[in-house]
């Protein structure tokens, strides 16, 4: 087979998979309605997807905030603007690092777990058995996990940013001697609720949708073998990371640039 044919075959398979992914998303969205009548299913998934991700989010957010505090201070102090540290830390977290790093951590912690769980359910015929028991796996398995991911990620990103601001405060004010009043007042004056915070929230909502979609789709589409599930889990992390970074560029351009 020539290189041109191989390229064509690869392109067709990518397009076919994209098509399957979109049909899958449509079926998942259609299955969200009945979930309103069974909130327990959603609450259980919110716990395993969201609450169990809290530790890694809080610890990472704190460290990222402390690093931002250090790096920000080192740069700002040369210009005699150390009191702007609070603004730098908050804007970096709320606009970019909060949504992006949370989405990457989410893919590694919750996304991979969702893929593995659904993939194994498929490999052990649990999804097939549900179908034969007249239970739609989209309503019972896929939709609750998808919605839990979509809801959890923006909340986790908000917690990440809040903890990061505290980390920056600890280093900036506690260790490096920046004035506490300046740290908070500069932040309050320069961080805009709509332009900065809301745009960050929109980003994390988009990332949540994409990360949850990729995670549940990869699990559902995984070949029902141990190798298939393993590859699907890896693909979830890689594809989510690439999608989040690419989308972040596009969204940043739309929100803050001239795109």
């Amino acid at each position: 087979m020539g290189a041109f044919q191989r390229l064509g075959q690869w392109s067709l398979s990518v397009l076919e998979r994209l098509g399957r992914g979109h049909v899958f998303l449509f079926r998942t969205l259609m299955a969200l309605g009945p979930l309103a009548l069974r909130p327990r299913l959603l609450i259980r998934e919110l716990y395993s997807v969201g609450v169990l991700s809290l530790l890694i989010i809080v610890v990472s957010g704190f460290f990222v905030g402390m690093v931002l505090g250090y790096q920000g201070y080192i740069t700002l102090v040369d210009f005699g603007a150390a009191e702007a540290l609070g603004t730098v830390v908050a804007l970096s977290l709320v606009r970019e690092l909060g949504p992006v790093v949370t989405a990457l951590l989410f893919a590694g912690r919750a996304g991979s777990a969702l893929t593995a769980e659904i993939g194994l359910m498929k490999a052990t015929e649990q999804l097939s058995s549900m179908e034969m028991m007249a239970v739609d796996p989209f309503k019972r398995v896929i939709a609750p996990r998808f919605l839990a991911g979509v809801i959890s990620l923006p909340l986790l990103a908000a917690i990440f940013s809040a903890v990061g601001v505290m980390g920056g405060y600890g280093i900036g004010v506690g260790v490096l001697g920046v004035d506490a009043g300046s740290y908070w007042s500069q932040m309050q004056a320069n961080v805009d609720l709509f332009e900065d915070v809301m745009n960050g929230v929109i980003k994390s909502m988009v990332f949540g949708l994409v990360a949850a979609w990729i995670a549940v789709f990869e699990g559902y589409d995984a070949p029902p073998t141990s190798e298939g599930v393993s590859r699907a889990t890896t693909r979830t992390v890689v594809h989510t990371a690439l999608a989040v970074l690419a989308l972040d560029f596009i969204l940043t351009g739309l929100m803050f640039g001239d795109l």
């Binding site: 015929e125 649990q126 058995s129 179908e131 034969m132």
Partner: peptide
């Protein structure tokens, strides 16, 4: 229709 069908899978396929 599937409510009137039952299927025993080779693996059992119990929900773990």
């Amino acid at each position: 229709l599937r409510r009137r069908m039952g299927m025993l899978f080779q693996s059992g396929a119990l929900l773990t």
